[in-house]
Amino acid sequence: MFIKKLYRYNKVLGGLFTLYIISFVVINYKWGLVATPVLQYGMYSSILHINDTQTVYRVEADHVPVNNAGASLTNRDILQIYPDIYARQQQINEDAFATMKKYVGYTGISSGMTIDRYTNRITDSVFLRWYAGCVQRTTGKPVSHLTIYKQDLTWQNNRLQPAGMAVKLYSIGN
């Protein structure tokens, strides 16, 4: 048995390997908290439904819609994911802080765990100026005016169709 052989070779190594395997099993059994490098690998194991609402972000650079399908995989992810996570970042960070404070407390170093370290002090205009740079890299053209819309879609009649009107989230520039 490998663990036995490893333990005979080096007790510390054997112990660490056993600890990793046990932590992996525990963390995977109790889905929620992880401790990198002990992670969960679900790989699309949560149940999804074809009629679930999908949210996409439509970006207009200088009043011209940015073609997401023409962007590289990474640029498309950046254009789509950042408006979503920016809108939720404050809530996500505050919730994570509240949950993790207890666990960090067990290590005895929670005195350094202050809310200002765990949150971003950022304004919409700072984010939008930065995001405009990402759009510029995708389109290859300078951006002086930027608008981001949020659009919900659902799969109906064998195609993705808008579920309601697009909502204007942010706008910056002339």
């Binding site: 992880v34 401790a35 993790m100 350094g112 765990m113 370290r117 971003n120 984010f127 930065w130």
Partner: peptide, 24 residues
């Protein structure tokens, strides 16, 4: 990238590093 904001998650190791303020 010169990022302007970060996102926390339920990862103990990440939160231990965040105590140092390195993310800021």
């Amino acid at each position: 990238l010169q990022p302007v904001f970060f996102l926390n998650r339920l990862d103990l190791t990440l939160n231990l590093f965040f105590v140092t303020g390195i993310q800021q």
